[in-house]
């Protein structure tokens, strides 16, 4: 069988590679080219050098949305992972109805971002108006808190499943041995469980960081960037640059921002992967 694979590997690789090239590599390269152009449609693009990048880097709204996004990513990554891990720990203990809880916690992840955004907008606006506070669209701080709550609610279940799988793969004898040696629950958690689920932590932090940076649907539906772009995240800023302005130059600006955005996400997630990977241990 292995021989067959060695012989026929192009047949296995080709379909996916073709789809990947058509769906990702080609548009990416074209997008890179367009970021140096002034264009309305991609067929009529004229090269204009680094103008787009100069504009994008000088745009204060772009930087505001960058810092807003960065802060959001840090807060949501920490909250989601800590809470998801805590729930995973609780649900790997033999408690009644653990499976039902797992299903319930996972469910929000099955609803689309736009729908979630509108549902939470109604919910949060109701709460805010009862408390006689300004509504979501009027206050960026509430917008930020709202987004964090929404993302936690949506993502905790998903990360929890990954952590549960990680925790269950720790051999029971490690924990048994530790208990016999007289380790406390805290020591077991920090010396055995966490080091052993490092691969899960790597993947979960990677997912939450990139999800945080790329967040679009929820941002669009929950706050729409209001008030006056104050709660606008990077992806929405790019979208607005592209579509809510007039004239051909804006498409190029948006494209340049998108390339900068892509590079930033890649760099940040690379650093994170390197950092958490170095903490992984061999079982």
């Amino acid at each position: 069988m292995e021989k067959a694979i060695r012989k026929y590997w192009p047949v296995f690789v080709l379909p996916t590679l073709a789809a990947f090239s058509v769906g990702f590599i080609y548009p990416f390269v074209q997008g890179l080219y367009l970021s140096f152009c002034r264009f309305t449609t991609i067929k009529k693009a004229s090269f204009n050098g680094l103008d787009n990048y100069a504009y994008a880097l000088a745009d204060s709204e772009f930087w505001h949305s960058f810092w807003f996004t960065a802060l959001f990513t840090v807060v949501s990554t920490v909250l989601i992972n800590v809470i998801a891990f805590a729930i995973a720990l609780a649900l790997t203990n033999k408690i009644k109805g653990a499976n039902i809880f797992r299903t319930v916690f996972f469910m929000p992840n099955l609803i689309g971002g736009i729908v979630l955004g509108y549902i939470w907008q109604i919910l949060l606006n109701c709460v805010l108006s009862i408390l006689e506070k300004p509504l979501l669209a009027l206050n960026a701080t509430y917008g930020f808190i709202g987004l964090t709550i929404l993302m936690c609610w949506q993502q905790i279940g998903y990360m929890m499943i990954i952590y549960i799988a990680g925790l269950q793969s720790i051999p029971d004898d490690y924990i048994e041995a530790a208990k016999i040696d007289g380790a406390t629950t805290g020591q077991i958690l920090f010396r055995i469980k966490i080091p052993n689920v490092m691969p899960s932590i790597t993947i979960c932090t990677f997912l939450t960081i990139t999800n945080g940076f790329k967040l679009f649907d929820q941002n669009l539906a929950l706050t729409g960037g209001e008030p006056a772009h104050a709660s606008e995240m990077l992806a929405l800023n790019i979208y607005n640059t592209f579509y809510s302005r007039t004239g051909p130059q804006w498409k190029g600006y948006g494209q340049a921002k998108a390339v900068i955005f892509c590079i930033m996400v890649i760099i940040i997630s690379m650093i994170q992967l390197r950092f958490t990977k170095s903490k992984e241990v061999q079982q």
């Binding site: 300004p134 009027l138 008030p227 006056a228 302005r245």
Partner: peptide, 19 residues
């Protein structure tokens, strides 16, 4: 542009709410 309308809209909303 749309951006202009959005700016006016945000300001009107904030004015109505007193913020």
């Amino acid at each position: 542009s749309e951006e202009w309308k959005n700016g006016v809209g945000s300001a009107l909303t904030a004015y109505a709410a007193g913020t």
